[in-house]
Structure formats: C-alpha cells, structure tokens
Simulated scan of single mutants.
Amino acid sequence: MTPFKLTDEFLAEIELLMDSQKDLEIKSLLEDLHYADIAEIVNEFKEEKGTYLIKLLDSDKTSDILIELDEDVREAILNNLSSKEIAEELEELDTDDAADIVGELPREIVEEVISEIEDREHAKDIVDLLRYDENSAGGLMAKELVKVNENWNVLTCVKEMRAQAENVTRVHSIYVVDDEEMLIGRLSLKDLLTTSTKAPIKDVYIPKVDRVNVNEKPEEVAKIMSKY
C-alpha cells in the first residue's frame, strides 16, 4: 500500500467539494484513508471547514481523527460541537483518550457532556480517570482490559474473554483476578490454547505481573516498561 501524501491539489479538491456541499463525493474520497491521514487534512483547514468534515463523517472514524489533531485545531472544533455531539465521539474512544478530550473541555460543559454519554459505565470510567493527575500512571491508563477469574475453567475463560474483547480496542494481556477482584497474575494465550478446556485457570496462569502504582510518574513507568 502506497503511503498517503497530502498535496495542495488534493486539499483544493476537498475544499471545492465542501463549497459545493457535495457530501457524498467527499465521503467517497476519504472512505479508504486512515484516520491519521484525515486528521492531517483537517489540520490544514480553518475551524469552520475542519468542523464541516468532522460533522460529515461517522463518529467511529472521527473520534480517532480528533485524537490525532493538533491541540489547537481540536479545541476549535470541539467548541463548535454540541455536548451531545462530543458525547457521541467519546462513546467511540477508549477511556484514556476520552478522558484526555474531556480534560481539554471548558469546565462549564464537562458535566453536560458526561451526562449525554449513553453508556453509563463508560461515562463512570472516564470520570474515574479524571480524578488522577494527568502526569501520573493513573492519568495515562485506560480502564478497558480483559480479565478472568482464577476459579474459572479454560472453556468458561474463553467464552468470557470473547464477550469482554468486544469492548476492548487493543488486547495485549489477559489478567487473572481472585474472588476479591485483586490482580494475581496473567495468562499466556499459548498455554490457554494447549490446555484442557476443563482445567482451572489457577493451574495455568503465570503469577508474576509487572505493575506500577497509579500515582507513579510517567518517567518511572517508562523505565519499568523498558526494563521488563
């Protein structure tokens, strides 16, 4: 696949289509582009036309575009969106990215935006993250994860993992917790696939987990990640 290269000609074509309100043609032109490429395009336009593109495209794509935008461009566009429109964008994002956007909003509309999020569990997770200092591990983390109970067998574990994974964008690890929801280890997918479906997870999981405290500074988190 050839990397996208933004040209003056392409920008002029998009602008002409916007001026002519040819929305279907714009959508067709942008359909196969990566969200980072579309963010590059939006960064080149003034506030009004950048907002036009964001409102034109579907939230499942524009939410990622917003995260990639230059901060001042994103701020200007968010100022042109209603609380409901912002909430729709947040619904599509992982909690860490959603919390970053909420943190940039004027204080007077934050509560209104949160109240417009239909998924109340997602809204609660975003609010939880906002309580942490942005310059800490808690301020950087996402609440989405896949976790299994040590007392489940492998078959139950796989079924639960499938259900949970639907709401997780990136699955890097499978975490194991006890009945008190305390982290006690992690799962190797290889071990999971090669073990009897009747075997209990407590006989399969790896008890060692590298972890950090939510109040840890990002620099220290980076050192630990780099080492392990």
Rank of each mutant, 00 (worst) to 15 (best):
S196M: 07
D128R: 07
R120V: 15
G50M: 10
E48Q: 14
K61Q: 08
Y52W: 11
V168C: 02
R170M: 12
E91A: 14
D70Y: 13
A87H: 09
T95W: 06
N167V: 08
N79E: 14
P200M: 07
A39G: 15
E13N: 10
P106R: 02
K49I: 09
N43Q: 05
D58P: 07
A99G: 03
S115L: 05
S83A: 15
H122N: 10
F4L: 02
D37Q: 06
L193C: 12
A165R: 11
K208D: 02
N215S: 10
E219L: 04
E116S: 06
K227D: 09
E216W: 00
N213P: 00
L187S: 08
A87K: 05
D119I: 02
K49E: 10
S196V: 09
V168W: 05
K198L: 11
E220W: 08
M225T: 14
N80R: 08
D23F: 09
L24P: 00
A12D: 11
L78D: 02
I77H: 04
H122I: 09
S188F: 07
Y52T: 07
A123I: 06
N135E: 15
T2L: 07
T194W: 05
R170T: 14
A199F: 08
K223Y: 03
Y175C: 08
I14P: 06
T169Y: 09
K124T: 10
E144T: 03
F45H: 10
Q164E: 08
Y175K: 02
S63V: 01
I101Q: 02
L140Q: 09
D119F: 11
A137G: 04
V113C: 07
F4I: 04
E40T: 13
E121D: 15
A137M: 01
K27L: 15
H122F: 01
E160C: 08
A137H: 01
K61W: 03
V204W: 05
S20C: 05
V209C: 09
I174E: 08
D210V: 15
M182G: 05
V212K: 04
F45S: 02
V168F: 08
M18R: 10
A12R: 14
V176Y: 02
L24M: 13
D23I: 11
I224S: 04
V127S: 03
V146G: 09
V73L: 03
A36S: 09
A142G: 11
K143I: 04
R170L: 12
E104A: 04
K5F: 06
L24G: 04
Y228G: 06
V204M: 13
E160D: 14
K198P: 05
K217H: 11
E40V: 07
M225L: 15
D178G: 11
M182I: 00
E134L: 01
D19H: 13
V214K: 00
P200R: 12
L78M: 14
E40N: 06
A76Q: 04
L56N: 12
I114E: 00
I174D: 09
K5L: 06
I109R: 12
I184G: 03
H172C: 01
T95F: 04
W152R: 10
E85F: 12
R107K: 15
A222R: 08
E116W: 03
T2F: 07
E9C: 06
R131N: 14
D58A: 13
D37K: 05
G185W: 01
